[in-house]
Nucleic acid binder design. Structure first.
Lengths: 336, 336
DNA sequence: ACTCGTCTTTGAATCGTTTCATTTGTTACG
DNA sequence: CGTAACAAATGAAACGATTCAAAGACGAGT
């Protein structure tokens, strides 16, 4: 018995019909106690394991939900993924996670893959413009929920966080500290980042004499932050911003590394620093990092809920849930 | 075309046999240019997408590799997973990641699931004793590679890092700084942690008058570290260890938070602190954290390579690769 | 003894691919 | 013109589960 036994082998071994074995597996109530026992014994003896491919083929759908994120290494996404997995498990489904790495072609690759797998549904944090793809998917019966991106409710459901509000909160906080010359670090080519910037600019426009400079970083990683931070350190003190708002915590931690490394710049005295996402590591940074907290568990959980709603309605009813982010003040912007 | 078209529909539409469509998809060279074009056009028009379940059913195997880790939120594992995914992609396979959360029942659940999916192979960072399960899997033709755990080469292949050596390196470093009263923070019930402790104890035994106290933490997270750190702070200064070795960086960061929070203990002057894993955040901690670096990319990549070897040999030849960890000195243990 | 209803069990049909032995078509060569 | 050689296309038979109409078993009621 080197190879796996099939349901037919079990049937032969237990001297019943294949349909009976299937019933034992799927509708135990339909089977008499005696045969059930006999079948279960055979299953155990032969080491039978259901072939999911065959089951899916017949069923026409899998019990799998696809999730495409921009970067699994980013604690924000791993947290959302975790929550989604838990919620899906409760419904008897499994979540497959694909990492697009902010690359539209990888994103497309995973969408193809998940389509071939005939997933129950798709959760996606899109890189490019996926509107058309989503229409196609819906037509083919694959409900889709956008994650961390507001969707046109005519098209599909979505869960997101009000990024503009988050940006506003961050900048407002810096301005409330009395800082006037702000800098924004991030990659505004990403929609979320652009919104955060927009919110920040709105806050700045409400205060006389305040300004915000945009520093485009090469990516959203600790490393990118460090590189940008080095540039700030090189500037003459007068030319440096009084406060920096980074579009995520990884960037902020990188900037912090650069600034503190040379000890010429003090945080928050010389430059106040705030990040975004409030990842677990923010609190344990050189200078505990202020941040904007996003409800990641709620995002993941709600995404699954919305997907379930889509499925129930046959992909006709869409809903958008927008969460509000929250300011978390720590030492990097405190008492300055 | 609300529902998905099948290969049969494509065949009808292109006026060819189903086998021909399949050939276009799988063996384009066998098909003439003319028919190929016709078929491809039909595929595009009907929006045909291969049904992977059917393909798998026929093929008897999927192009999927299962990976079960102890905690995806832990950067060590997400890094390993990332590397494995990349390596697998290069071979045309996909990696599904399951998170056991150090729970044997969840681990078993994922093993069942992956078995039902008829995965090509399994990479697993085991919680409990999975020896028997692995034997069963091998019999059924599912090669398995242990990750971050040394395997009996009679049974299966493995990639791991010499944890005892890592523990030795860490403790030796602390002793070299002149510290004598050491403390070890971690959960020795985990095999890796126990080995690190053993290595540390070996280093301690080589130095006269040195001792190491074991503090069992409730988990391997930042939070668990913070709780344990609080206990250390509560102790009278004379009673505190001179150096602390944590079994991973998350714990170390937590301990660091507690110690620095109250400003009564200085790092590294009063207590030198070293972690394990050298995660990205170690460098950006309050006090940049010394650590033991593990070659995560190499682990992930090699795991896939070993799996491929297992497949080629039909699961008969096993190999164990052990990497050596590396000491990374930063401020948390520097110049003290 | 016969019918009816309930509970079990049966086994063929089905899902969408891939495979492969055959058939059909085409060209080249004696 | 016949035929060998090769290329291209065919279509039925798997793969392993689920489904469902139909058959079988059994007891109760008349």
């Amino acid at each position: 018995m080197s190879q796996t036994a099939s349901i037919k082998d079990v049937a032969t071994h237990a001297q019943v019909a294949v349909g009976t074995v299937s019933n034992v597996l799927n509708y135990p109530d339909r089977v008499s106690q005696r045969t059930k026992e006999r079948v279960l014994k055979s299953i155990a003896e032969l080491g039978f394991v259901r072939n999911d491919a065959a089951r899916q083929l017949r069923a026409g759908q899998s019990r799998t939900i696809g999730l495409i994120v921009l970067d699994v290494g980013n604690p924000f996404f791993s947290s959302v993924a975790r929550a989604a997995e838990d919620a899906a498990t409760a419904l008897g489904s499994v979540v497959l996670v694909g990492d697009s790495g902010q690359d539209a072609s990888r994103e497309a690759h995973y969408m193809d893959l998940f389509q071939e797998q005939r997933v129950q549904g798709l959760l996606i944090s899109p890189v490019g413009d996926v509107g058309e793809r989503i229409d196609t998917l819906r037509e083919r019966g694959v409900p889709t929920v956008l994650v961390d991106e507001l969707a046109d409710t005519a098209r599909c459901s979505s869960v997101s966080v009000d990024d503009q509000e988050g940006g506003y909160l961050a900048a407002k906080h810096l301005l409330d500290l009395g800082r006037r010359r702000l800098a924004f670090v991030g990659t505004p080519s990403i929609r979320q980042v652009a919104s955060r910037l927009k919110g920040a600019q709105r806050a700045v426009s409400e205060v006389d004499g305040a300004s915000i400079e945009v520093l485009d970083s090469a990516g959203q990683t600790v490393l990118a932050g460090r590189q940008l931070g080095n540039k700030l350190v090189e500037r003459s003190p007068d030319d440096r911003p009084e406060a920096v708002f980074c579009s995520n915590d990884l960037l902020a931690l990188g900037v912090m590394q650069s600034l503190t490394m040379l000890r010429t710049v003090r945080i928050p005295e010389d430059i106040a620093l705030i990040g975004y996402d409030d990842i677990d590591f923010a609190i344990s940074a050189v200078v505990p990092l202020s941040s904007i907290r996003q409800p990641t568990e709620a995002l993941g959980r709600t995404a699954i809920e919305l997907l379930a709603e889509e499925q129930e309605s046959g992909g006709t009813k869409h809903r958008s849930v927008v969460f509000t982010p929250e300011l978390v003040v720590r030492q990097s912007t405190a008492g300055a």
